[in-house]
Simulated assay, not measured.
Amino acid sequence: MLLLTQVVWLAALCVAVLSCPSIVFRHQWGGRPPRNRVQLKTPAPYVIIYHTAGNRCTSQAACRRQVMGVQDLHMVTWRWTDIGYNFLIGEDGRVYEGRGWGTQGSHAKNWNHKSLGFSFLGTFCKTAPNAAALNAAQRLIRCAVSRGFLSHSYTLKGHRNVNPTSCPGDALYRVITKWPRFKA
């Protein structure tokens, strides 16, 4: 017979697993290993939303190519130690692992040490991401909270709220301003 604490723990585990989106890990999308990693102090108090300002993707094959292109841009062209974002979100409804949960990103100067960076794959100035991508992002945020990587009292921001940029695009920005815990 299960003890009450075991039942509560199992229920919490089920909620955490059910709230997490499908994550395509680095080895699954063909990611190269990072040259360096800096541990992120968790739970992070902020989550920052981006767009990659590249092509949109609606299939796993197309999104995989986009993520590999972002990694090439960040690691080869810009000579960073790794892809900048913790996770990338495709319009195929999947989340692609960048630096992952416990690693400090390189996505927003002066904010990397205290935030998770989630980037939508594509350009979202005039059109918002589809429902599959938006749902995956919201599930990713809930997953981060349930797994202890993002504070229960987190603040959600767009990239433009922390650095001078138009990112994550006007259409996506309008959407996230309506999400829970958003604060400009």
Rank of each mutant, 00 (worst) to 15 (best):
P34G: 11
R139Y: 03
Q6I: 04
G30E: 10
S151P: 07
D72P: 00
G100A: 08
T77E: 12
H107W: 04
G90M: 02
V67R: 02
N112L: 06
H51R: 09
P43G: 05
I141W: 01
Q66M: 13
G30S: 09
S19G: 13
P43R: 08
A44M: 04
A137C: 15
C63F: 05
R35K: 15
T52M: 06
R99E: 01
R160N: 13
V162T: 02
N86I: 03
R56K: 14
K126G: 13
V47K: 00
F182W: 14
L140R: 02
C57K: 01
Y96E: 04
Q71N: 07
R32F: 08
V24R: 03
L10H: 10
T5A: 11
V7H: 07
T127E: 11
Y85Q: 12
F87C: 05
C57Q: 05
L10M: 13
H113V: 00
R181H: 15
N161W: 00
V76S: 09
T103C: 00
P45W: 06
R99I: 02
V76I: 11
H27N: 15
L40C: 02
Y154I: 01
L134H: 08
S106Y: 06
K157S: 02
R139S: 13
R147F: 14
D72A: 13
P21A: 06
W9A: 14
G54I: 05
I49V: 15
G84I: 03
P180A: 10
C63L: 08
A132K: 15
L3E: 13
L134F: 08
K109L: 09
H51K: 06
V17E: 11
S119W: 00
N135D: 14
F120Q: 01
L18K: 07
G158Y: 02
